[in-house]
Design a binder for these strands. Structure first.
Length: 143
DNA sequence: TAGGCCATCTGGTCCT
DNA sequence: AGGACCAGATGGCCTA
């Protein structure tokens, strides 16, 4: 865990000192701020725990370092879309389970799944975006 | 040194 | 009133 910023304290910031008429009110305000900061830290820690859980179930082929939060979300979205496509195809072709699994296993292998491979250049990223066909801005995902 | 990623603080808003 | 959630600001760490 990263160390906290030394310039910031839990008892409130220098830039926004509470406009208090009494020491009592000042104390109340700073105590509430401190409690809110602690809650926020805890909330963000929970969020990070969730991200860690997600990283564990999402493919990370070729990635020697952990995915960023943004990359994790992108990967999760792509992975779900890919799995969903497999299920949809299986229903359509009505394949027996074992045979179907063998057939589809290749679909989630790195070499057949370029979008999940490590990218090293902006060109690669462009390719990934075009081949993966998810759109964050439009909130639209194509299988 | 610039840029990316992250943790933390903070004030605003909504909800209970 | 107080908690949850969110977004903006800020500064630290790391890497190319």
């Amino acid at each position: 865990m990263k160390s906290r910023r030394p310039s910031c304290t839990d008892s409130g910031s220098e830039s926004s000192e509470p406009d208090s008429k009494s020491p009592e009110k000042y104390e109340t305000v700073t105590r509430r701020r401190s409690a809110a900061n602690a809650r926020e830290r805890k909330r963000m820690q929970g969020l990070n725990t969730a991200f860690d859980s997600l990283r564990k179930v999402v493919p990370q082929w070729g990635q020697d370092k952990q995915l960023s939060k943004y990359e994790t979300l992108q990967m999760a979205l792509s992975y779900i879309v890919a799995l969903n496509r497999i299920l949809t195809d299986a229903r359509r072709h009505n394949a027996p389970h074992r045979q179907w699994l063998d057939l589809q296993f290749d679909c989630v292998q790195p070499e057949n799944y370029p979008c999940l491979l490590r990218y090293d250049s902006p060109t690669d990223q462009d390719y990934i975006h075009s081949s993966f066909s998810y759109q964050f801005d439009g909130h639209q995902v194509h299988a």
